[in-house]
Design a protein around this nucleic acid. Structure first.
Length: 255
DNA sequence: ATGGTGGCGCGGCCA
């Protein structure tokens, strides 16, 4: 089973890139974030033509998540129970006996912003949801744009990022609490010689200088992690014309 | 360097 997560930063604009990735990798599931498209405008027919079904939760201009799958998407959930959120950032489904949670975690803006409190509240709600879901679905994968670099090994220059969102201790602790429920960061199941990143700021030619962060994660339950084969960050789509600022992260599990 | 670039959608917000 191959799963890809990708923050596309506008699905309509990036549909050619998405088609390319689906055709090249033929994943079982592609989880998208920042689709920035209302449900009525979701390009379902174009994706179906490639052999994929879709579920989606979108809104105008901002946010939006989608799951694209070869097999039927069942038991679809759009919200954390008891945490109604006008921002469309969660989509969960069951595919072939695997529970997949697709998240677009709030960015947080800055450590003194109201948005940072929202980010921490959102992560607390996610933790409760993961705990509940893991009890029901032992084969679970939590993927998406976490807007958190788990450790300084995921940051090109930790000094530059000191005191900023995406690396702050409170959000890293919140992520660790979620991992401690029984998840593995699949990228780290393979020993890495070099730092690798999944996002590079559009500004200051950050990609060319490789000034990135690894904030797009695939977290697998221990049950699923037993079947881990590979996790790969493909930088090629970030080199395309008018790219997303994120690049796909790909994982393979046995069978 | 409190900037820089990009997306949406048409002014200003968000990342």
């Amino acid at each position: 089973m191959r799963i890809i997560t990708w923050n596309v930063n506008s699905l309509r604009l990036r549909l050619p890139h998405v088609s390319q990735v689906l055709t090249q990798y033929r994943p079982s599931i592609l989880a998208l974030q920042e689709t920035k498209v209302q449900d009525k405008d979701f390009p379902e027919a174009e994706i179906r033509a490639l052999g994929y079904q879709s579920v989606y939760s979108g809104q105008k201009t901002f946010n939006g998540v989608a799951l694209i799958s070869q097999l039927p998407l069942e038991e679809v959930a759009f919200e954390f129970p008891g945490f109604p959120d006008p921002q469309k950032r969660l989509l969960a489904a069951t595919v072939g006996g695997v529970r997949i949670l697709n998240v677009y975690v709030p960015n947080g803006a800055s450590l003194v912003s109201e948005k940072y409190h929202y980010k921490l509240s959102w992560l607390a709600a996610l933790k409760e949801y993961v705990k509940e879901q893991l009890a029901i679905y032992p084969r679970l994968v939590l993927v998406g744009d976490f807007n958190i670099a788990p450790t300084d090994d995921d940051v090109h220059d930790p000094k530059v990022w000191e005191g900023k969102v995406l690396v702050s201790q409170r959000e890293r602790d919140a992520l660790q609490e979620i991992l401690d429920l029984g998840l593995n960061d699949t990228f780290r199941l393979t020993v890495r010689e070099e730092k690798e990143y999944s996002w590079w700021d559009y500004r200051a030619v950050a990609f060319r200088r490789n000034l990135g962060l690894r904030i797009d994660l695939i977290l697998a339950s221990h049950e699923l992690a037993k079947r881990y084969q590979h996790c790969y960050i493909d930088k090629e789509p970030r080199k395309l014309e008018r790219p997303s600022d994120h690049t796909p992260v790909i994982v393979d599990f046995d069978e």
